[in-house]
């Protein structure tokens, strides 16, 4: 909780300095006041913990983002190809897939990564499985065999 609060303060200070661009005493004073207020409210709400400020992920996160970017480009290409083809040939499917994430964080990252890539969207999520609607049946098979789950397990370990 201590390190998370400190991290939140540092993040908010950077956020304020970058967004403001004016460094006069009045504006800086207002900045200090609002940062103090935000931290106070966040601590009262009990949302300052490993879940909201996940520093323990930050070392692995850039590699995951790069991999996700590659997936984004591939799936965007597939969806755009379907949009422009003559005589729409869609094969939408909805199916539930077993997941092996043991943390809430892992499940949320998985569900959001699936929703973020075009062509697949998470419709519901439980502790053991997620339900996915896909533009094409093949993307569900790709999700089942793909290494997205394994990558997120490595990320949240």
């Amino acid at each position: 909780m201590k390190t998370q609060t400190l991290g939140l303060v540092i993040l908010l200070v950077i956020f304020w300095l970058v967004n403001s661009g004016h460094y006069t005493p009045l504006i800086l004073g207002l900045g200090v006041a609002s940062i103090g207020l935000v931290v106070l409210v966040a601590r009262r709400m009990n949302v300052v913990d490993e879940e909201s400020i996940p520093f323990h992920l930050s070392r692995e996160l850039p590699a995951y983002y790069l991999w996700l970017l590659k997936e984004l480009v591939i799936s965007n290409y597939q969806v755009v190809r379907r949009i422009w083809q003559f005589g729409l040939k869609l094969n939408p499917a909805i199916e539930s897939i077993d997941i092996t994430q043991d943390s809430d964080m892992g499940r949320v990252i998985l569900a959001n990564s699936i929703s973020l890539t075009p062509g697949t969207i998470t419709t519901s999520i439980t502790a053991e499985s997620i339900t996915v609607h896909a533009l094409d049946r093949s993307s569900i098979a790709a999700l089942k065999n793909g290494d997205m789950g394994a990558r997120i397990r490595r990320l949240t370990r």
Binding site: N76, V79, I83, L90, P92, L116, P118, G119, H133, L135
Partner: peptide
């Protein structure tokens, strides 16, 4: 299916 198009 429109949701997928929107996410592009």
């Amino acid at each position: 299916t429109r949701m997928h198009a929107a996410s592009v």
